[in-house]
Nucleic acid binder design. Structure first.
Lengths: 196, 196
DNA sequence: ATTATTCTGAAACGATCGCTACAGAATAAT
DNA sequence: ATTATTCTGTAGCGATCGTTTCAGAATAAT
């Protein structure tokens, strides 16, 4: 019973992600969002709750599609050390060809909404923790395999790599050139040593 | 001739800095700002132009008082290598005891306003460039003095240190603990080597 | 003391904000 | 075909946004 939705909820959510991503939370009005999603505001509220709930859903969708997908794919296809290198290379590649300088929704949100909303702050912290966990897993595995020297422990080095990724994302948002982003990453990669 | 201002323009600007710093540009309403500055909105517009101009002035004041002051002070008192170490230590110290998790106004702005306002974007890029220039000067001087090995060139390593600082600032904004921030910096400092 | 100029507090401007009410359209079950 | 339920477009709610207006207070120069 009842009328069916005339739009695809997931496609519309993707449009919301793009809107929040490009403009940020505060600067994305519900009218902006509804227009980008191709629906009326009544449908938006009916389907997603309110603006904040829509943002939480958009954040989760972004994390699944952009971060978790990347980590899972890279871990499946590369040895630990190469996984770290590939991850950084992808971040740089994505950031370098980012005409609108959207950067990373998670990082953008971390400095914007997350600081005014405790629950969203916890979400962002958890998402960033997943990135660090990836680095840590990879570093520990690489050390076991003898791919890296293991002079610096994985807990510390994983935090360093997370910091480097965040730094790259910030600089990318300011429209930095690829060469600069590569320079940020290069010394971190050098820490992995020259072992294959 | 004419009536005198009943408030101190610099003190009021400091209050505006705090407001923008804690809440961001969009989330700081003119009423918020005026109240924090202890003046009416008419005085605000009379003295500073409009909200955007006030923000530009606040950004400049923050850069002068927080960034340039720190760089000048540290460069005057420390040898190059120690200058880099001290700079990072101060950033971590500041970030660790930051009850409101305000982070860094420049970084916060980089991801917020700067992406929607080309002129402010250029300002932020220039300010971040000053931080990198400090690292580059220090690295080159340290290499000349034999304080660091100079295996990695200063241009690349200065970008890395800038990235690390930005990463620390992002994590600090999410309320990260001091231990995590130290872990981000530690491997970068290790790159400087153990030379005195 | 008068004049010219600037500053200030209060009020309000039109625009936009997030959000909702509501009538009608669309569908599933009867 | 009728009924029950849900969705959608429109229109508009009260609140707040950035900004301006304006009368009056304060000061410097005459």
């Amino acid at each position: 019973m009842s009328r069916l939705k005339a739009f695809d909820e997931d496609r519309a959510l993707d449009a919301a992600v793009d809107c929040f991503w490009a403009r940020g939370y505060e600067a994305s009005s519900v009218r902006d969002l509804a227009e980008a999603m191709g629906i009326g505001s009544a449908s938006l509220y009916n389907a997603y709750g309110d603006k904040r709930e829509l943002f939480v859903l958009a954040l989760e969708r972004y994390a699944n599609r952009s971060m978790r997908e990347r980590i899972a794919r890279i871990e499946a296809r590369h040895a630990p050390k190469q996984a770290i290198e590939t991850f950084l290379a992808e971040i740089i590649e994505r950031s370098a060809r980012d005409p609108d300088s959207k950067g990373c929704l998670l990082v953008n949100s971390a400095l914007d909404v997350a600081s005014r909303d405790a629950e969203i702050g916890r979400l962002v912290t958890a998402y960033l923790g997943e990135i660090r966990a990836f680095f840590r897993r990879s570093l520990e595995a690489a050390a076991r395999d003898g791919q890296v020297s293991g002079q610096i422990d994985a807990a510390t080095l994983s935090a360093h790599f997370l910091g480097v990724v965040l730094g790259i994302r910030v600089l990318a948002r300011t429209g930095a050139k690829r060469r600069l982003l590569e320079s940020v990453a290069e010394p971190a990669l050098a820490l992995l040593g020259s072992g294959q």
